[in-house]
Amino acid sequence: MNSFITIAGVTLIGLMLLVLIRVIKGPTVIDRLVAVNVIGTKSIVLLLFSGILFGQLDMFVDIALGYGLLNFIVSIAASRYYQHRKCLEQKGGNS
């Protein structure tokens, strides 16, 4: 079971790197925001995987919950901030 969890964790990190490409390439700021939100929710899962591997999952579950809440709040705050700045949209030309 533990070896399977490590394999799943490694593939998860690989897929997150794929999403990271979108963060780098994204023409507009809000594309980057979306990709960062995806990476944020995926790091909750990674936290749980490492919790299972290290044995004491109780601690990691709380950390993952805290991290998930923070990620959610940052997404809301950043989207509220970026919605009033007209100049940023399509500044980098269409993708």
Binding site: T28, I30, L33, V34, N37, F72, S75, I76, S79, R80, Y82, Q83, H84, R85, K86, L88, E89, Q90
Partner: peptide, 13 residues
């Protein structure tokens, strides 16, 4: 959160 970002994208044009 996705809805908020969509709303922001809509408002930003």
């Amino acid at each position: 959160a996705t809805h908020a970002m969509m709303d922001a994208g809509e408002r930003a044009g």
